[in-house]
Design a protein around this nucleic acid. Structure first.
Lengths: 222, 222
DNA sequence: ATATAGATGCACTGGACAGTGCAATATGGT
DNA sequence: ACCATATTGCACTGTCCAGTGCATCTATAT
C-alpha cells in the first residue's frame, strides 16, 4: 500500500500514488485555520486538487487525514529547539536563545491557528491534546532538567525546576500567543522586548546573588 | 414582551413567563462544556425542562440564547475584582489579593470550559472574543493603572504598566489555567503556591530597591 | 367562569455533511 | 499493446440539526 509509492513527485500534479502526500499537505492549512469539525471532505478534496472519492481510497476517513497532518506539524515543532543549545554561552545567553526560539515558533504562520485548533478540538477528541502533549512535554522536561542542573551547580536557585520552566513560558505566552488567541490583532510589545523582559525577570528571581561579577543585572530595560 | 414577566419564579416549574430565565440558566453549563456548535436545540430544551418549540417562542434562535448566556457569565466575571481593593495594605498585600481573586476565578467550576469555549468558538464567531475582551480589558486596564500609579509614587518601577500586568497574569495562567486547557488533570502546584510565587517574582523585578525596610523580600519560598 | 398569553407536541422543510458502491477512465510499468 | 492500479464522477444512503406552521392545551388574571 504505502511502500508502493515511488518518490519522484512530478511538479505538474502528483499522480499515481502521490495523492496521500498531496492530501495531507493541502489539509494542513485548512485544519489549522478552521479546526477539525469545520472542514468538510469536499473542501479537503478541492484543496488537494483531487476527487472526493480519492480521499476515501487513501484514508479510512476524515480522522485519519487529521491524524496524519498532526504528525507532520508535530515533527516541525519538535525541531524548534535544536539539541546542544544548553552549552552555548552563559545562563542568560542560553535562556535568551530558548526564549527566542519559542517566540519564533509562535510567530510561524499557522501556529496560532494550530494552537487554537488544539484547544478547541481537544474537547471532542482528547487524543489531540495527548498528541500535542507528547511533543511539548519532552521539551519542557529538557528545559526543567537544564534548570535543575544549574541549580546543582549553584548558578541558579530553582527548588522546583518544572514550575520555574512554566513560569518562563508563561511570561512569554501571555504577551504574544495569548492575546492573539483572543482575537487581538497587534501584539503588546515586540518579540525582542518580550524575550528580553522574560529573561531579565526570570534571572532577577532565580539567579543566585553571589558568584562572578554579574553583568546580567546591569541591564535594565535594555 | 419582556416587561410582562412577573417575578415570582415558583419552585415547582417556572411557568408563565419564567421560561426565558430557565432556558438561559440551563444553557450555561451546556455551552460551557461543549461550545456553541456542539449543543443542539433538543439538548437545550431537555436541559431547561421546556418544549423545543418554546425556545423559538422566546428567542430568535440558538445564537440569541448563546449571547444571553455570555452576558450572564460576563457579569459574574466582572464581579471577581471588587472595587477598592487597591487601598488595602501595601503593594505585596494588594498584589496577593488580586492574584488570589484571579486564581479563585480560574478555579470556579465551569470557568475552564468557558475559556476553552471562547478560544474555540471565536474562530467562527469573532464577536465572542470581542464580548470577552469587553469584560477583561477594563480589569487589565485597572490593574495597569494601579501599577502606573505606584510607579509615580516611586514604589514600583513599571515603565510599561500594561505589559507588566500581562506578565503578572501570565505567571498565574501558565501554571493553572493553561495546563488544564491542554487536557492535564492535576495542576503543577497548589493555587496558594502559584499566587505566592507570582507576587514574589513580580516584586523581585519591579519593586524599587530603596524605600522603607522591605519586609517583602525577607520571604523566600514562603 | 372566561379570556388570554404563553407552552406544548408534532409533523414538516431544507440543508449540510460523512461515508459507500459502482462503473468508467487515466496512468505507468512491463 | 496490455495489465494492474489509482483515480474519477455520480448517485446514493443515512444522520443530524436549525428553524417553521399549526392546532391544542394550561395556567393565571380579571
Amino acid at each position: 500500500m504505502e511502500d508502493s509509492i515511488s518518490l519522484h513527485s512530478s511538479p505538474l500534479r502528483a499522480r499515481r500514488g502521490g495523492s496521500r502526500e498531496a492530501i495531507v499537505e493541502a489539509a494542513e492549512p485548512l485544519f489549522m485555520k478552521n479546526g477539525f469539525g469545520a472542514v468538510s471532505m469536499d473542501e479537503l478534496a478541492d484543496a488537494a486538487g483531487v476527487a472526493r472519492r480519492t480521499l476515501y481510497n487513501q484514508f479510512a476517513g476524515k480522522e485519519e487525514i487529521f491524524r496524519e497532518m498532526l504528525l507532520r506539524v508535530s515533527a516541525q515543532i519538535e525541531g524548534a529547539l535544536p539539541p546542544g543549545i544548553e552549552t552555548r554561552g552563559d545562563v542568560g545567553e542560553v535562556l535568551r536563545l530558548i526564549a527566542t526560539e519559542i517566540a519564533r515558533l509562535h510567530a510561524r504562520p499557522g501556529y496560532l491557528g494550530f494552537f487554537r485548533m488544539v484547544v478547541a478540538d481537544s474537547r471532542q477528541f482528547p487524543w489531540i491534546a495527548q498528541a500535542f502533549a507528547a511533543v511539548m512535554d519532552p521539551m519542557m522536561e529538557r528545559f526543567a532538567r537544564y534548570l535543575g542542573y544549574l541549580t546543582e551547580l549553584a548558578i541558579l536557585y530553582c527548588p522546583n525546576p518544572m514550575f520555574a520552566a512554566h513560569q518562563f513560558t508563561g511570561l512569554l505566552n501571555e504577551n504574544s500567543l495569548w492575546p492573539m488567541l483572543m482575537g487581538r490583532e497587534g501584539a503588546l510589545a515586540s518579540a525582542e522586548d518580550v524575550v528580553e523582559e522574560t529573561v531579565h525577570m526570570f534571572l532577577k528571581r532565580y539567579q543566585l546573588p553571589i558568584r562572578k561579577h554579574s553583568a546580567l543585572n546591569a541591564r535594565d530595560r535594555k
